[in-house]
């Protein structure tokens, strides 16, 4: 068992938050990815244990969604949207520029382990700011070569998001059981305030 105590506490808290522990699967996967940067089979099994659910169910759910990584990659996740609206404004060229600049192909990680570059046909939801990329789940829109250069420059030295902030224990909630989940989720939101 490799998850931190705090993460396990969060997972257990999620299980209480919903009428069915199963609803806690996706929040639990996020908690694990937040701690470790990705979700391994061992973590899936651990989630299953804490939620008292069959592990096949956890894998079935986690593998369905595109945002859970299954193995360690670069410290930073850069995803270029190549769907139609971005394509109309040069997403292919942005991707080519990124590949050239980083010296890797989409799907690969830079030698220094700083950046994993990917492209996706999945609309990331910033069509009005095309071309765009998603950097560690934050949007960079209206991309130009200068803008891309600046982002990469920053990422070269920045630690991975899951290394910056560690999950905290869920705050105990006084007097409220059924609703505790909502408050219980608060530290997560506060934590990421810079």
């Amino acid at each position: 068992m490799s998850l931190r105590k705090e993460t396990v506490a969060m997972i257990r808290e999620y299980a209480r938050r919903y009428p069915s522990a199963q609803s806690a699967i996706i929040p639990a996967l996020w908690a694990v990815q937040h701690e470790q940067g990705y979700v391994t089979a061992e973590s899936l099994a651990e989630i299953a244990t804490h939620l008292e659910l069959p592990p096949s169910l956890i894998e079935s759910t986690s593998s369905f969604y595109s945002m859970f990584l299954t193995r360690p990659e670069g410290r930073h996740d850069v995803v270029i949207c190549v769907n139609a609206p971005c394509g109309l404004r040069g997403a292919d060229e942005v991707l080519a520029y990124c590949e050239r600049t980083l010296g890797i192909r989409a799907g690969q990680t830079t030698q220094d382990g700083a950046i994993t570059l990917r492209s996706t046909p999945e609309c990331l939801g910033a069509c009005g700011g095309a071309p765009m990329m998603q950097v560690d789940h934050r949007f960079e829109e209206n991309l130009t070569s200068e803008r891309i250069d600046a982002v990469f420059e920053r990422l070269r030295t920045e630690p991975a998001p899951h290394e910056v902030v560690k999950p905290k224990a869920v705050a105990p909630v006084k007097g409220e059981k059924a609703r505790s989940g909502v408050e219980g989720a608060r530290p997560r939101a506060r934590r990421t305030q810079k």
């Binding site: 069959p54 096949s56 169910l57 894998e59 079935s60 593998s63 369905f64």
Partner: peptide, 10 residues
């Protein structure tokens, strides 16, 4: 009821 086989990926 064993839920041993499951769908994986999408």
């Amino acid at each position: 009821g064993e839920r041993e086989l499951a769908l994986i990926q999408r």
